[in-house]
């Protein structure tokens, strides 16, 4: 029971990171981006390549930072992947979403993102093969927190949780203490009014893609570190991330964080009450319950 709760918090950390990017995009650009989760797999695979590159160029970095299964090479790879994935998100917007957006039909963006998701997922599959891959084949053993009841936590997961919380804190500061944060909120509230007041709409949108892509890359690597890399990981993560975004309320960064943890915990606690075959339904039952009580999510606001 308590073990499930702890597991849920740990799972929630990467779901939250993914949901933050999605909620920003959904809020500023006003569309449900089905290709967002593919940025997670893109980021994870880019890091896999960078990791191998760095480790080959500077072998010293390939040593593990015990007790983590993380290496310095992977840390550098994460940073590189953040940049590359952020730029990729920007590029995809430039090539596809921007053009579709300018045509201006409500559902076009959603379907364009669905099409992009298919493209990204299968291109990754063509490049890397369809089998699972790992950053490190060694198994990092869990630490025993308590014997009765038995509580186990893996050092990697603690690292993931701490790093995710730090990133969220940085994002919080960025949004609440900087001019950029204000302009972001202004655009979200009312794009034309914000423009009249001198906010560069174009640049704000670029920033949203960069931040969203970078956070997605981290989330993807953290997922890969905790589990494994597989080309369909984006598809598998899409639903929990969407659930987190919706439960938290579209547009609310704090909502996305909370939503991520709620979805993670619910997924892990579900087995306490439901037979294991039913786990995939849990995030949705949760969404429906939350939306029944709060039609715009926990932190979301009604808007036209």
């Amino acid at each position: 029971m308590i073990q499930n709760l702890i597991d849920g918090v740990l799972t929630g950390s990467y779901i939250s990171l993914g949901a933050i990017g999605l909620t920003l995009v959904m809020h500023i650009l006003r569309f449900a981006n089905f290709s967002h989760a593919e940025l997670l797999s893109l980021g994870a695979y880019v890091a896999l390549v960078c990791d191998a590159l760095v480790a080959a160029l500077v072998p010293v970095f390939a040593v593990k930072l015990a007790p983590l299964s993380l290496t310095w090479a992977l840390v550098l790879a994460i940073l590189m992947s953040m940049v590359i994935t952020g730029l990729s998100a920007l590029l995809i917007d430039r090539l596809v979403f921007k053009r579709v957006r300018e045509k201006g039909l409500e559902l076009s963006m959603i379907f364009a993102s669905f099409g992009m998701a298919l493209i990204i997922r299968n291109v990754i599959g063509l490049f890397f093969g369809l089998s699972p891959q790992l950053y490190s084949r060694d198994i990092a053993f869990a630490m025993v927190l308590s014997r009765d009841p038995l509580l186990l936590v893996k050092p990697d997961q603690i690292f993931v949780l701490v790093a995710a919380l730090l990133l969220m804190l940085m994002l919080h500061l960025l949004l609440s203490r900087t001019t950029f944060g204000y302009s972001l909120r202004a655009v979200a509230e009312n794009p034309s009014l914000a423009q009249v007041n001198g906010v560069n709409l174009h640049r704000t949108i670029m920033a949203v893609w960069l931040i969203g892509g970078a956070l997605a890359a981290v989330a993807g690597v953290f997922y890969g570190l905790s589990h494994q890399l597989i080309p369909v990981m984006g598809r598998d993560l899409l639903l929990p991330i969407f659930a987190a975004t919706i439960v938290g309320g579209i547009g609310s960064v704090y909502g996305a964080v909370l939503g991520g943890f709620i979805v993670g915990i619910a997924g892990n606690m579900a087995l306490v009450v439901l037979p294991s075959g039913y786990t995939p339904s849990v995030p949705f039952l949760l969404i429906i319950v939350v939306l029944m009580i709060r039609p715009h999510g926990l932190f979301g606001e009604a808007r036209a």
Binding site: Q3, N4, D7, L10, T11, L150, Y223, S226, H227, V232, M233, R235, D236, L237, P240, G267, N268, A270, L271, P275, S276, G277, T279, P280
Partner: peptide, 20 residues
């Protein structure tokens, strides 16, 4: 006896169930 569904992001809960 734990059912494992395809395409789940994490199998931690299923494993915990079997382990318990």
């Amino acid at each position: 006896s734990v059912a494992v569904n395809d395409g789940q992001p994490s199998y931690r809960a299923e494993v915990t169930e079997a382990l318990a």
